[in-house]
Design a protein around this nucleic acid. Structure first.
Lengths: 94, 94, 94, 94
DNA sequence: ACATGCAAAGGTAAAC
DNA sequence: GTTTACCTTTGCATGT
């Protein structure tokens, strides 16, 4: 529940600066959130289109999940290989 | 990495078409999910930057939430006004 | 922020009953949370013991993660097989 | 799944021993994680049961949080008292 | 169309 | 300070 830092013993210029910064951060985030929502809506549209073409969305989601898991696991396997190679001194520690 | 089953009583052409369509849907969605993740990461970066500048992220999130609520309320209010105006014949029905 | 249900127009007996019930639920949960914490501590102990024996805990965690992923993926694969079999009418829908 | 690398300059006996140890640690942890999950599920069940009886789970969680804070404060207090007693020679150091 | 249950994502807090 | 795990919340799908 803390507030914006130090607007008491600051010059008006500094306070105004912090205010502008705050406004900037807020607006940047809101802009990005908007873009994110747009993309989320696009995804929904694609699902709807696929459903309209006769595909089962539940199966589609399942496929996407598995493909994601595959990718994750590939990354994990590489991570553990690196870890072992480090342990064997075949790789310089990061 | 198995494909969709093509042992239904479909012509090879139709099966191949469905397969291409499926591939297209999957790839479109995966592409969009990637974009969504990029933006989510961007948002994280902005929060990190704000934190580094001395702002309290929890307070920032609270402000964003309030502003979002306000926006929602405004939208809802306008929707009701439109509805009334439609009912009164002051607006053409959508 | 709602409260315990209906303690206004209830007989003292009913109110007492609700109070006892509440106490019972709270205590059951607190008991379980305690057990959960004990086990979490046990896990930490095993990691510490392994580390003391010369094992790299980071590698251990990596192995555990992969084994978990394997299990999850096996379950997912079975789920999608079922889904396809349903789609092909080889399985009754759940 | 792959094992730990045994191409180090270790005797076969030593390598086999390490392998057994690793397996043991992994299995002990997985066993404990399973138990932890069981208890977490039990807790969920109790919340569900409470909800079914008409209690507001959000309020229940709030009560639990407050009681936990109280317990933590009490524990902290006792720790300080112990510390003082140790300092005064009224308690043997841990 | 609504309401409920479930799954995924994000946020928060703790552990290393 | 970074990462990881838990928990909360939200949105999505399903059924009535």
């Amino acid at each position: 529940m803390s507030d914006i830092p130090n607007d008491q013993p600051l010059s008006d210029a500094a306070a105004g600066f912090a205010k502008e910064q705050l406004k900037s951060f807020i607006e940047r985030i809101e802009r990005l959130e908007e873009e994110k929502k747009t993309i989320a809506d696009d995804i929904k549209d694609v699902f709807a289109e696929a459903k309209g073409t006769g595909f089962d969305t539940k199966a589609l989601r399942e496929i996407l999940k598995i493909r994601k898991q595959d990718a994750d696991q590939r990354a994990e396997h590489e991570a553990i290989v690196d870890l072992y190679m480090q342990a064997l001194g075949m790789l310089s520690p990061s």
